[in-house]
Amino acid sequence: MTAELQTTPVIELKGIKKTFRVGVLDLPILKGIDLSIHKGEMTAITGTSGGGKSTLMNIIGLLDEPTAGAYSFEGREVINLDDDELSSIRNKKIGFVFQQFNLLPRLSAAENVAMPLLYRGESIRKSDTTARTFLEKVGMGDRADHNPMELSGGQQQRVAIARALAGNPSIILADEPTGALDSKVGQEIMDLFLRLNREDGITIVMITHDPRIATQCAKRCNICDGLIKRESEAVS
């Protein structure tokens, strides 16, 4: 508790609302979310399907804007930033892991992992070296030159995790990272996340509807009826 008060949270959401307009109907999906994520935490967000988990994740990841509310990222207000600044934060501070892996199909594993670094302006050679280091880290060193199509789901997700890590971000956002994998492979991916959090102190927010995955996270939140409820405290 004290640690939380002393440091600036990586993510701080206050009263985040999101309403989708479908035809003439206004659909309130998020109705006032308050959430703080601190450095080194591993947080699971659970909730029913269609409850707005991905919507919240997209707002946290600066891919979408809330209808109302305040959001500060590492103490910086990000609601009114322009597109270039948002892109820059996504590029340098956020690593995404998606349910469908979302690797670029025409690029090799190493080229995929190097992508955020290239958008940062790093040279192809330098980013390739970094990419290979991170592929080693997730156990995919020997598949660096393979195309995503040649890899299994679990392997693709490892590459995606390497890509999320390669830019040395402040936070990893994973939206149902095990959702497309069978439970054994899903657990392997979960173990990788846990190891990254424990050994490297990487801050992770993970969406899941699988309680077996969620219980492995020290901090758990549940979205219900557009509001968020914390189910457990982070254990320091």
Partner: peptide
């Protein structure tokens, strides 16, 4: 479009 979305998520700016 999806490829464009992935690139934007990885930090590509509009001009990229």
């Amino acid at each position: 479009r999806r490829e464009i979305g992935i690139r934007r998520a990885l930090g590509a700016r509009r001009r990229d």
